[in-house]
Nucleic acid binder design. Structure first.
Lengths: 238, 238
DNA sequence: GTCAGGACATGATTTTTATCATATTTTAAA
DNA sequence: TTTAAAATATGATAAAAATCATGTCCTGAC
């Protein structure tokens, strides 16, 4: 947690995500409580919020920026399981099941993050049934997404999965002002670790997509040129 | 829901799973409420509890028996995501996130199941913070398992995944009285749909395992002969 | 019992994917 | 700016896995 810098002490009430984040669905008194006890920091690109295997000490709420959540495979290969953006909460999984973190969280760009200590999180959750319900909803949604991903990993070829991943990145982070460039910089290796394939395979297929005119590649900038064809390539029907 | 037969109206208080199931961690008054409103039935082997795509009407609690939970892939291929046993609860995922069922549940053998209507489930959950917390724990555990499975599907070869699956079946259902025969009958296709591979591949690798002396195959009966070697084959370290 | 359909098994082949090798380009540090 | 290291790209090859084909075995209906 070294090298993080405190941000201006913004209130939850004025936070840009006060209508998106689960936390903001807590009762007003608890939002106030969270507001008092939270700690805000800026994580530079590449900095780690928490590491797989360490003990959870609280939950994080992204104020602005992007974070990846990834698991370490047995051979050390990274598997990215989630991409998070402003308003998203992370670190609750391990905390709720009383285990160590099963994933690592790393900032994909300079990111402002509020930290809510473990005890506060648990106590608010135990008192505020509404928030608890929202939390269950969140967990259920994540579980749904995970089970969908399991099915796709098991049944779809890599070409389809790459197309799907590009669309997923678009859904998550959207486009830049030009309306076609994916609004995040990921390395080819990270894309591969999101798709679940070898880096070379991801690179090769991206080149194919480029040849087919579906995408344009400019370093880490990826432009989606033919959205519909990408959807067709992803072979989505659910 | 045709062809189900009511069981003796057993009380939750006398239920064999009263120490295992999440529901039994509710406050006593709510357990009583559930006890009054639940409906118990027997599902014959192969019968469906609910279907992917239909609207959830409540949650199910397995009194005795075995159930598989599976998703339909885009090409219609089944992907089994969970194996459930006595004390396990199912059908809550869709209910909590307010969607249709994203999976189908089918009895793997004659199974006694209690059904708790949607409204009761939701209202108890909203009033009993302890139960809500247990539910979050359950969801968190499932999410953890799902993310582990994602990593393994993405990174492990099929041989390792099959070994892992056999160990998973053992963990879930245990052995018969002889201490070596897996206590469930699954078709080769179901095993393949659990591993995430083609049926022929699963059959072939099971034959390999047999040649290696790790398992013995007798129709749908699978005996684990060399547990340690199977663990080594699964290449587990987490 | 016997007969048909499905499950299981196994060989042959093709397809997919990973790995290895090697440029080329980009990036970041000195 | 130079330079080394890392990232990207692409070809060649090997390995893994799916598919196709065929035969056998098992099981339940009659």
């Amino acid at each position: 947690m070294a090298h993080t810098h405190p941000t201006d002490h913004q209130t939850c009430q004025s936070c840009a995500n006060r209508f998106n984040s689960v936390f903001c669905k807590a009762k007003e008194e608890y939002v106030n409580l969270i507001n008092e006890q939270k700690v805000c920091n800026i994580y530079k690109k590449g900095q780690t919020l928490f590491n797989e295997g360490s003990n959870p000490f609280g939950v994080f709420c992204i104020n602005d920026g992007k974070v990846k959540l990834s698991h370490q495979g047995d051979d050390g290969k990274e598997q990215i399981t989630r991409l998070l953006k402003q308003g998203d909460v992370l670190g609750y999984r391990a905390l709720l099941s009383g285990e160590r973190y099963s994933a690592s969280a790393v900032a994909l760009e300079d990111t402002q993050i509020c930290f809510i200590p473990k005890d506060l999180f648990i106590s608010v959750l135990k008192q505020d049934a509404g928030l608890a319900f929202e939390m269950m909803k969140l967990l259920s949604d994540e579980l749904h997404k995970a089970e969908l991903k399991i099915t796709h990993l098991a049944q779809k070829p890599i070409r389809e999965r790459l197309a799907e991943t590009l669309l997923f990145i678009k859904e998550t982070y959207g486009f830049e002002e030009d309306g076609i460039t994916l609004n995040v910089r990921l390395s080819r290796e990270e894309i591969a670790n999101l798709v679940g394939t070898a880096t070379e395979s991801a690179i090769r297929l991206l080149s194919d997509f480029k040849k087919d005119g579906m995408v344009e590649l400019d370093g880490k900038k990826i432009k989606i040129l033919k959205h519909k064809e990408l959807v067709r390539t992803a072979n989505l029907q659910d």
